[in-house]
Simulated assay, not measured.
Amino acid sequence: MRTSVPVIVGHKANRKSILQKYLKLTLKFIEFDVSLANGRLVVKHGVESGAPGVKKFIINYGYLLIEGKDPILAPSNLEEHLKEIAGKAGVWLDVKSRGVETEVVRLALSHSISDVIVSTGFHNMLRKVKESYPSVLTMLGNVDYRPANPIKEVELAHADGVSINVHYIDKELVEELHSVGYKVAVWTVNDPQKAMWLKELNVDYIITDIPEKITRILLGS
Rank of each mutant, 00 (worst) to 15 (best):
G62C: 11
E200H: 05
D94P: 01
K130V: 07
G62M: 09
I210L: 06
R216D: 14
K171I: 01
V47D: 04
R98C: 01
E176F: 00
V189F: 06
A86F: 06
V203C: 05
L19A: 13
S110T: 08
R98A: 10
L173Y: 04
L82P: 12
H81S: 14
G161N: 00
I18C: 03
G121Y: 07
R106I: 05
S179Q: 07
T215V: 08
V9F: 01
S221V: 15
G10R: 02
L201R: 04
I85Y: 05
L218I: 07
A89K: 03
E155W: 00
I85S: 11
L73T: 07
E48G: 08
V154I: 05
V7M: 09
S97W: 01
E84C: 10
I207F: 01
S35I: 00
S221A: 14
K171C: 09
L156T: 05
F122V: 13
S135R: 12
S97L: 06
L36D: 14
K83F: 03
K213S: 14
T188C: 05
L25C: 04
H167T: 10
H111N: 15
K130D: 11
A159K: 02
A148N: 10
V189S: 08
W92S: 07
K128D: 14
K88H: 10
I30V: 15
E84G: 01
H158Y: 13
Y145R: 09
L65A: 13
V174T: 01
V180W: 00
R98I: 03
L78C: 14
L36S: 14
P147A: 07
I8V: 12
M196D: 03
H167R: 14
V43I: 15
L19P: 08
N60C: 08
P150H: 08
E67I: 02
V7W: 04
S35A: 15
R98G: 13
E176W: 00
W92E: 06
V34I: 14
I214C: 09
I169W: 00
V34P: 08
K171A: 11
E103Q: 15
K194G: 05
L140E: 02
K16G: 07
L65P: 12
V105S: 11
L73H: 07
I169N: 02
S119K: 00
E172P: 03
L219K: 15
H81C: 15
I113K: 11
R15Q: 14
S132F: 03
D70G: 08
A148H: 08
V116M: 12
Q20K: 11
K128S: 14
L177P: 04
Y145I: 07
E175A: 09
D209Q: 03
K213C: 01
G68Y: 03
G53I: 04
Y133S: 08
D170W: 05
T3G: 12
R216M: 13
V184M: 02
R2M: 07
D144Y: 10
K152W: 00
A13D: 06
V136T: 10
I210T: 13
G220E: 12
V174W: 00
Y168H: 14
G46A: 09
K55H: 02
I66H: 13
D209I: 01
K96S: 04
E153R: 07
H111D: 13
L126R: 01
L23I: 01
K83A: 15
D160S: 11
